[in-house]
Nucleic acid binder design. Structure first.
Lengths: 358, 358
DNA sequence: CTGAAAGCGCTTACAG
DNA sequence: CTGAAAGCGCTTACAG
């Protein structure tokens, strides 16, 4: 009786016929956008139910010149950090009744641009995204050019006019590095994603450099690798790189996932954390605190970052907000976990290190 | 010169004027859907570039009676298992040139239905989803009723006519449980998400029940909890429940995230894994193998599940595929990790257990 | 090879 | 309170 099978083919027209009124009236009743008599309302609503009518958003969007949709672009779903930000964005978007169009770039700049083009064709109202490098991004240039509202997440653009929600990556690793120095570490290696594909990693590296420099110490040696590689691959690369890295006593990793894999890789190499070597991550993913020892990290408000970014984007779209400081830095927290320990032997410059624990 | 600022307002009409031809011709050239002279093509293409024209998908969709979009509905982004499946789905959808409309239910059945309604209004071509319970779902009933193509992920519906891609949850935990029995465990507790919100958890529980029963052993005691709760909460609940759970020597957890948290909670309670108690998870998330000891688990092909589900959905939409066995089971692999050990003391029934390790 | 016309489903002044 | 009409941007027979 109720809800016809072919409701896909049911339009406002069928409803009007059934309710015995005009299209305009049906529209007004459905949207409560204009006056209607009690009887008319009742008849339209009855017709809607009988026909299983669902207003076609495509028609609405075309006519209203707004799809209400928001494009969301992340480098990867695999990193829980991005997953969390998507969750935050989704919450806010849902409350605003806005659908999310989701894509991932795989850290590929060419794909960033392709995705932006597609989103532009889809006439989204705005875009929330994380790009490889916010300081030189064809995708962002394109968005600027066409005047599409957007907001960056995680990226910390040097051009302060680009709207972004992130944490102060530079200050955070500087703080972490000072702590390491306080523990007596002088030979620190930085393990990070390739700078070409993640400006966050580069900023974090620079914070480390600055802190060491301020303490009169040598810059950290750098090892760029892919956090998605296997433990075995990480073990091989790290094992081979130890001499070049100057036999470091501490590893600063650009993200938690990488840090956890590095700890496993060190175990494969017969090195124990933190007895033989200290390891710190970045992000503050939940699992880090479940490990033993607990992962030292910079705890960042990933969920809140997504929420805040979406809020700002929506404000920007509605034009209700005057221009403000574009790059918004959220509070982070340094968690010195169990993976950090004083430099082995106690003497900052010492070369001896215990090996072969297992 | 190129790419006008107000390109949002540029339609095929402007292009036609600039190229000196009709709308139909522009459409044909852009879509290569009909003949056109070399000169016409050149002029249209030039106009497109000069105006920075991007065809409006809204208009195309309305006219073509298909948005090409696919709705994707997951319980949560926080669980890497769902994130991985979304990644798999996105890959396949992208290759097919189909945008993804993403929502999360928060394991809430009312929201499942709301989301489905919205997706129906948006005239998606199909929906890939994981619901709380595929055997009684208003959302799925609705999809069946309106004839919207869909495919389930992770859910293992008892009604075999509902298309799904998953693993045999029952067989998997049965295998895992037999292994535990082989290690001498007889008092096994099952820790899982609330059955009302996850039919996977219930199926896995039943596999455990069946294996114990087949061995002439008592059914596992059950503790339902939320995998998103904190370690402290888990520690409290587990500590209080130990007597009621019959002082188990092994915990079978409904997913890896929960298992990892449970291991941390046991640590808080002064219990060591696997010396005092064995713990197994389910899913095979990457981090599990990075832990020490490595997490015992059922390794499931989450990425492939997403890819396969999207493939099947697209086949279903294009109608190219005849009806086939609806529930497709992917291969899983049991990984007996370091978190499993023979029952303490070696005697299956023994009550003594070492405590207070730390 | 090309163009005029209809129409996808909706909303919104405008007139009554 | 209600309806006729225009039009959002596009595609697709149809005619030439």
């Amino acid at each position: 009786m109720v809800a016809d099978d072919r409701n896909e083919r049911t339009s406002i027209r069928q409803v009007a016929e059934r309710a015995g009124c005009s299209l305009s009236t049906v529209s007004r009743v459905i949207n409560r956008s204009g006056p209607a008599s009690a009887t008319t309302i009742a008849r339209v609503e009855a017709a809607v139910i009988e026909l299983g009518f669902r207003p076609n958003s495509l028609g609405q969007s075309l006519r209203r010149q707004s799809s209400r949709a928001i494009g969301v672009v992340v480098p990867s779903f695999t990193n829980p950090v991005f997953a969390a930000s998507v969750a935050g964005m989704e919450t806010v978007a849902r409350e605003a009744g806005r659908p999310l169009l989701l894509s991932s770039t795989g850290y590929d700049r060419a794909r960033e641009l392709e995705i932006i083009e597609t989103l532009l064709c889809q006439r989204v109202d705005g875009i929330a995204l994380t790009v490889a490098d916010a300081s030189q991004s064809a995708a962002l240039d394109q968005l600027d050019q066409v005047g599409m509202p957007y907001v960056l997440l995680y990226n910390q653009p040097r051009l302060r006019r680009r709207p972004a929600v992130t944490v102060d990556n530079f200050a955070a690793t500087a703080e972490l590095t000072r702590y390491l120095i306080g523990l007596g570490h002088t030979r620190i290696a930085y393990l990070g994603g390739r700078f070409g594909t993640t400006d966050r990693s580069r900023m974090r590296f620079e914070g480390c450099v600055a802190a060491l420099e301020a303490a009169g110490l040598a810059a950290p040696r750098l090892l760029e690798l892919d956090y998605l590689d296997s433990i075995e691959q990480h073990a091989t690369v790290i094992g081979q790189s130890m001499p070049r890295l100057g036999e470091p006593t501490a590893f600063l990793c650009s993200n938690d996932l990488l840090a956890i894999s590095v700890i496993a890789a060190l175990r494969v190499l017969g090195l124990s954390v933190p007895d033989d070597i200290s390891v710190a991550g970045f992000d503050g993913i939940a699992i880090g605190q479940m490990l033993s020892p607990g992962l030292a990290t910079i705890d960042t408000p990933t969920l809140a970052m997504g929420e805040r970014a979406m809020q700002r984007l929506l404000e920007q779209i509605s034009g209700s907000v005057p221009a403000r400081n574009a790059v918004e830095l959220l509070r982070y927290e340094f968690r010195p976990g169990g993976t950090l320990a004083p430099v082995p032997g106690g003497n900052a410059g010492g070369r001896e290190r215990r090996r072969r624990k297992s």
